[in-house]
Design a protein around this nucleic acid. Structure first.
Length: 238
RNA sequence: CCACCAGUUCAUA
């Protein structure tokens, strides 16, 4: 079954969903939970979220057990459809099912709520977690940032460090982006300038892009231009 | 010693 599943995944990665689906349909006894998960992920990753849900419903109709992997592929599909109702539905199923690697499941939930614009629910999930990893923090910070609560995002960023969680390069993308959405130019500069020294993060294109975005949105166009001009060329190349 | 059957956060557009 493993080889069949791999083949399916290969097709989904090429966008050949019909072929993948055909393989899926032709599987009989070797079709396992991974086959289901792969097909669902195939739809989800190819902007066909509603078909992902269709297949998921089919799975439940057959009383097959879902697992945490499936949940973490379905939740981003909810955000894609801005379907907070579906998300809440899955949330309640998660609570019932008591899925194993909870951290990842909660992280996905945080992100789903945040992307659907419901930062309060996102925060609630975050607050109730017994263990949080860097992704949990990244997800809430990002959630506040994209919803315009830059100061809250920065506050959490600080708090995270106080808790001894080491920010990674993704954290800093979230933080800079939060500054950008909230017009926090000064803060953004400060953070950007301390990327390598205090955060041990090698600045990447994304960080530079955040800064350009930040300056541009704030109307500091000349400064943005200057910034781009002074960019290292290895960044420019990427 | 280890190589992968699906999996959460990652700017702009």
């Amino acid at each position: 079954a493993a080889v069949q599943n791999s083949l399916m995944v290969t097709y989904t990665r090429c966008g050949e969903l019909e072929i993948a689906r055909h393989l899926f349909d032709e599987m009989s006894c070797e079709r396992n939970v991974i086959s289901w998960g792969s097909m669902i992920a195939g739809y989800a990753h190819n902007q066909r979220a509603s078909e992902a849900f269709e297949l998921f419903r089919e799975m439940q109709k057959r009383r097959l057990k879902m697992n945490w992997v499936i949940v973490t592929t379905l939740l981003p599909a909810c955000s894609y459809l801005a379907a907070i109702k579906q998300g809440k539905e899955i949330h309640s199923q998660i609570v019932k099912a008591d899925l194993v690697p909870d951290v990842m499941v909660w992280n996905a939930l945080i992100d789903m709520y945040a992307k659907c614009g419901n930062v309060d629910n996102a925060r609630q999930v975050f607050d109730r977690m017994s263990k949080r990893d860097v992704v949990s923090w990244n997800a809430v910070i990002g959630g506040y940032g994209t919803n315009g609560y830059g100061e809250v995002a920065l506050g959490l960023f600080k708090e995270m460090q106080q808790e001894g969680i080491v920010p990674d390069h993704i954290t800093l993308i979230h933080v800079l982006s939060a500054c950008s959405h909230a017009g926090l130019v000064e803060e953004g500069w400060q953070i950007f300038n301390s990327l390598s020294e205090t955060f041990d993060v090698r600045p990447r294109v994304e960080h530079y892009a955040c800064m350009v975005d930040l300056l541009g949105r704030a109307g500091h166009l000349d400064e943005a231009e200057q910034f781009i001009h002074n960019m290292p060329k290895e960044i420019e190349a990427s």
